[in-house]
């Protein structure tokens, strides 16, 4: 029993990381159908922001708290810039965006290598986040709990923004029907840029969270990006709750399978499960109901 609970918690914490990354992707992918491969490098930007801040602010706790909003701004600004420079020009060719942004991600990785050096760097976690908690025989690592809380907080905030604010209404309108939104007087280009800013900013926040569980390196983003995209594919782009459910489901599935088989076999089984799932729901868990044929 304890083993099952422990594995579930591991799975949930994997899911929380996936969720943090996938939240931003759901926005950008849902909005413009754009696959932003540079999303992983925005995660890296967030992580390096934390690293630089910790060099200048010695207290690990304060630097982490400052890093969260700052990483959001840094990664968000990068995303908005990318949207303005490249992605809006490729609006009619979403598949090509995938390849273009992959080129961008190559350059950003090299930039990180030139600025910070190729070897991985580390940050110190605040004392509060280094220990463990024990609840009913299950060991819960504080840093994992923090990431879980952060992911849920981000998901909640984003849901509230999308549901309640005028900006959220505009974003939802563009996702659901871009042409109608445009004729209704919504400046879709501005909404695109704002969406990209928020989506990329969330990648930055994910980067800050990842500094707590692993090293910071130029290629750290690529390790997570494919899994995060799978979350979006399975969850569907219509509603955030698709991503939330999928992220945790994939996380738990992955960790349970890893326990009963091996890491590599678990990956393969998860992929087969995803393909099987798409047989049932080809457009993901939550789909937009439209009359469009494509």
């Amino acid at each position: 029993m304890t083993v099952i609970l422990n594995q579930s918690f591991t799975g949930i914490s994997i899911g929380a990381v996936l969720l943090l990354i996938a939240l931003g992707l759901t926005l950008t992918f849902g909005q413009m159908g754009v696959i932003n491969m540079a999303h992983g490098e925005f995660i890296m930007a967030g992580a390096y922001t934390t690293y630089v801040l910790q060099k200048s602010i010695s207290s690990a706790g304060i630097s982490l708290l400052v890093a969260l909003p700052l990483a959001f701004l840094v990664a968000g600004a990068m995303g908005a810039l990318l949207e303005w420079l490249l992605i809006r020009r490729l609006y009619t060719r979403p598949l090509d965006t995938l390849l273009v942004t992959w080129g961008v991600s190559l350059m950003l990785q090299q930039l990180a290598r030139d600025v910070f050096g190729a070897p991985n760097v580390q940050t110190h976690a605040p004392d509060l986040l280094t220990g463990n908690m024990s609840v009913a025989g299950v060991t819960l690592a504080n840093n994992r709990l923090f990431i879980l809380g952060l992911a849920l907080l981000c998901a909640l905030t984003l849901t509230l923004i999308l549901r309640l604010t005028p900006l959220g209404r505009r974003i939802r309108a563009v996702v659901q029907n871009r042409d109608l939104a445009e004729v209704s007087g919504i400046a879709t280009e501005r909404v695109d840029r704002t969406t990209f800013f928020i989506g990329s900013g969330l990648a930055g926040v994910a980067g800050v969270a990842l500094t707590l569980v692993g090293p910071i390196g130029p290629t750290m983003g690529t390790n997570y990006i494919v899994d995060a995209f799978l979350v979006v594919v399975v969850g569907g782009v219509a509603q955030l709750k698709g991503s939330v459910i999928t992220a945790f489901a994939l996380g738990v599935l992955q960790s349970v399978l890893e326990y009963s088989t091996t890491v590599s076999v678990a990956k393969v089984i998860v992929l087969v499960a995803i393909v099987a799932f798409l047989q049932w729901r080809p457009q993901g868990l939550y789909t937009l109901r439209t009359r469009s044929l494509v």
Binding site: G33, I35, V226
Partner: peptide
């Protein structure tokens, strides 16, 4: 299943095979 969805699935397949081989 098409477009970006197919691209991601085919990419995930590449990731899965190389991870499996390493294991």
């Amino acid at each position: 299943v098409k477009g970006a969805y197919f691209a991601i699935l085919s990419q995930a397949l590449a990731a899965a095979l190389s991870i499996w081989l390493i294991g």
